[in-house]
Write a protein that binds this DNA or RNA. Structure first.
Lengths: 159, 159
DNA sequence: TATTGTTATACTCTATAACTATA
DNA sequence: TATAGTTATAGAGTATAACAATA
């Protein structure tokens, strides 16, 4: 096994990380200025918005890079802002169900056009249809490969 | 202009952001545990390591997502740790020259193998040579496109 | 006047550990 | 005993504004 990356790999790695970083920076700016939302808060709202009904905190944590306490903190902020609502689960008394409010949906609708405009302008503008398909195929495989490794939410808690 | 993204674009966007997020998370973990470095600190050291000689703070800020005060803060931490050294510029009295120390180079060498292992294992493992070339080509174009837009470091300061 | 960099300060994000309550 | 979630707390990252020194 080689100690360093091949030149083509280096080039690809740098292009990917720099582009992803620039894109994320732009998206963060947009979400903050047009909706006063951090990226994580937007992720939470988007996930609740796409879900059929309320989710538990644990379900919500899956796929979000977050500690449990961090999620509790953000949920507290979003609830104070009136964008989500928490209630006790009827089936499991330990669980908390989190649902998005009308105000939460409205906030998502408020920032989405700008979000889409950024993504289109920065990411998709210089790409052909074939490029988009190829990129989706490649990164889809990479994502699936990464997901197959032990996920964060399944890590055991410290004792 | 359509208000939302095409399904293929959505899929590609999500795959890209999730994969990039997972990769960055893993890299951060590795840098912290094996070298006690934040990602930004590693970026600074890597940039100084690759440079011919010392850089000014402004040159160092270019390409790093950072405010000037944030860079000053990180430079202070790295200098306290003995990984970089600052000295007054002989040509411009206002400027500060930042160079990497032997200890700094050693720290980079210490974390690099693990860094490479993560990138190879997570990103390149599931990809063919053709995939890597295609990904590099596509993201290279995206990066160049983004770079063409007004960069952060050129934004005028607030008055 | 504009630019380089630092300082003071404050706010947000994130994590660890301890805790309560329920399964 | 294990799990769901919260709380308390602390540390790190980032930004704004004011500042001093130099161009």
């Amino acid at each position: 096994m080689a100690k360093s990356l091949a030149p083509q790999q280096m080039q690809t790695y740098f292009a990917l990380t720099e582009a992803a970083s620039l894109l994320q920076y732009a998206v963060r700016q947009q979400l903050q200025s047009e909706g006063e939302l951090s990226y994580v808060q937007f992720e939470i709202l988007a996930k609740l918005s796409a879900a059929d009904g309320p989710l538990t905190m644990t379900e919500l944590a899956d796929g979000v890079v977050y500690s449990r306490s961090g999620l509790t903190h953000q949920a507290g902020l979003l609830e104070t802002a009136g964008l989500i609502a928490r209630e006790a689960s009827p089936t499991d008394q330990r669980a908390t169900l989190v649902g998005i409010t009308d105000a939460g949906r409205a906030r998502v609708a408020q920032v989405l056009p700008g979000h889409v405009a950024i993504v289109r302008g920065l990411l998709f503008d210089p790409l052909s249809k074939q490029d988009v398909a190829a990129l989706g195929d490649i990164m889809g495989r990479v994502r699936d490969h990464m997901r197959a490794l032990p996920p964060r939410s399944s890590r055991p808690r410290r004792r």
